[in-house]
Design a protein around this nucleic acid. Structure first.
Lengths: 90, 90
DNA sequence: ATAATACGCAACCTTAGAGTTGCATGTCAA
DNA sequence: TTGACATGCAACTCTAAGGTTGCGTATTAT
């Protein structure tokens, strides 16, 4: 299944939270995102764990990243999500 | 998260296939479903494994079941799926 | 009554995934 | 240039999820 990675990506609550944040602010550095998740949302998790999650989201096409100097810019993309559940709805 | 179980349920490709079948024929016995998945879709899996998947789908509210004599009737319910991805779409 | 049938339950195995720790790399500012 | 900072990489632990095997239970048909 070609959208297997998308469903797998959405299966984790932390990743869904990350998508919420990225959805609000479309462009964000990994550092900003990490700070917000740990600071505001009180997510008890390490930086490396979040980096792994980003990797999963990237492979699913939900996030694209680009190294910009010292930082890593993250860009949210909702396209892979659009219509994923349509097959079960009439 | 209250729809955590829904996303977890959708994460597995076999369960998504089961939902496809159940979506086509809203009412179906576990036996019929198992026969179709193994026969038609060539899913190499045991009956017990499918029973476990049904359990997951039930806990997510996507399937309700009712013992009808010798058989177990399965009824598909799309309500938990409706709008689950809306939070990431404008 | 009894055998075949559809299902339930429980123990077990195996692997993938989430998370951590530790260290290396690259970039920017002073 | 040197140190602080943001990130990358790899090995390791631990748990849960998917799957199997084996046996028990209930229902139907002969």
């Amino acid at each position: 299944m070609h959208n297997d990675l998308v469903f797998k990506a959405l299966a984790d609550p932390t990743r869904r939270l990350m998508l919420d944040e990225l959805c609000e602010r479309k462009e964000q550095t990994l550092y900003e995102l990490t700070a917000r998740l740990i600071g505001r949302h009180e997510v008890a998790i390490s930086r490396q764990a979040l980096a792994k999650h980003i990797e999963v989201l990237e492979k699913a096409g939900l996030v694209s990243s680009e190294r910009r100097g010292k930082y890593r810019m993250l860009v949210f993309n909702d396209e892979p999500i659009r219509g994923v559940t349509d097959r079960w709805l009439k």
